[in-house]
């Protein structure tokens, strides 16, 4: 374990050095994510100028849901970004064959190879929004509530990661699964708003089939409406673990199944 932490740290330092080489790019990456999140929020803000609540949820509550989504998403974005290009940059050109003969698990090598600085902007905006929204909706910052919040955010990112590892592993069979990864990932946008605004089909899809509901709405609702969503809050970590287990299972199956493209 310690060996992998050291190894990751080593890779991490390399990445930071690269980032410092391209300073303008670093700034653009962070600004772009900041801007896109800001635009989404501004949109919600304009809409809430016209109405008080959306199906009973206030502006500050929607911001809180948004904030949880931002944080969970950011962790996934910063540390697991190489999953996106796995098919294109590793399977297709045979780079993965090389990984298999190195003395570390292939998945570790893949993850360690990239740190995506652009996600940092997202994490910052998420934390800032949390600190803005929490007092206005009566969430008290105690040691317990902080710990629960951190656990829920980590679970949220585990849902993101698990689902992404699953769709990414499909590359073992279809060479480049990026279209599938993308279309599944985009579904996570649904979870940024209270799920109650959608019809039942979408609600159960987001809860039980592609459980992105647990990346933002359910963890946030645990704080906002504990009467109704207490259970959903509690099972969020279980869903997070479950997603990662399924992702890992499919990844292993893929590796065993892998024969290379012959390139």
């Amino acid at each position: 374990m310690l060996r992998y932490i050291k190894l990751y740290w080593h890779f991490f330092k390399l990445r930071v050095q690269i980032m410092m080489e391209y300073r303008l790019d670093f700034i653009i990456g962070i600004l772009s994510v900041l801007f896109i999140q800001g635009a989404g929020l501004f949109f919600v803000n304009i809409v809430f100028k016209q109405i008080q609540t959306i199906r009973g949820w206030s502006f500050d509550e929607v911001v809180f849901i948004y904030a949880v989504a931002c944080c969970g998403r950011a962790i996934h974005h910063i540390f697991f970004d190489s999953l996106w290009v796995f098919g294109r940059d590793y399977i297709r050109n045979g780079g993965f064959d090389r990984m298999l003969v190195r003395p570390a698990p292939a998945f570790f090598q893949l993850i360690a190879e990239r740190v995506q600085q652009d996600g940092v902007g997202q994490l910052l905006i998420g934390i800032w929004l949390l600190s803005y929204a929490a007092p206005t909706i009566g969430v008290e910052w105690t040691f317990v509530s902080m710990t629960v919040l951190i656990i829920l955010i980590l679970s949220s990112s585990m849902v993101f990661i698990g689902i992404h590892v699953f769709t990414c592993s499909l590359s073992f069979w279809m060479t480049d699964s990026m279209p599938v990864q993308w279309s599944v990932h985009e579904m996570s946008d649904f979870a940024r708003y209270p799920l109650v605004i959608y019809n039942r089909v979408i609600q159960s899809l987001m809860t039980w089939i592609i459980p992105y509901g647990f990346t933002a709405f359910y963890p946030a609702a645990y704080f906002l409406r504990p009467e109704t969503y207490l259970k959903m809050g509690w099972i969020t970590p279980i869903i997070g673990f479950g997603c990662c287990l399924i992702g890992a299972y499919v990844w292993r199956k893929g590796v065993r199944n892998f024969t290379g493209t012959g390139s």
């Binding site: 790019d25 653009i28 600004l31 772009s32 994510v33 801007f35 896109i36 635009a39």
Partner: peptide, 15 residues
Amino acid sequence: WLENMWGLRVFKAAL
């Protein structure tokens, strides 16, 4: 001039 086209494109898309 830039390496990070992804960032610029995301920025443009948001804009």
